[in-house]
């Protein structure tokens, strides 16, 4: 995941990776961790198709 490719209104590119990188990491963890939990539970259940 990258957070460093935003642009200014006039079309110039600003590398925002520095100042806003922690915010980006936090935001993606905020949604990524619950998704990982849901996927883990789902894969465990789906495995029953081959073992059950």
């Amino acid at each position: 995941m990258t957070t460093g490719d935003s642009s200014t209104p006039d079309g110039g590119t600003v590398q925002s990776g520095g100042a806003r990188a922690p915010l980006g990491v936090l935001a993606w963890l905020w949604v990524g961790l619950p998704m990982a939990y849901g996927l883990y539970e789902l894969i465990q259940k789906a495995a029953q198709l081959f073992t059950g």
């Binding site: 990258t2 935003s6 600003v14 925002s16 990776g17 806003r20 993606w28």
Partner: peptide, 20 residues
């Protein structure tokens, strides 16, 4: 309105927090 330097990659997690 996003200030200069705002990363567009911050918008998908905002959307995901609602859709999830």
């Amino acid at each position: 309105v996003a200030p200069p330097g705002w990363s567009r990659w911050l918008v998908p997690p905002a959307a995901l927090s609602v859709h999830l």
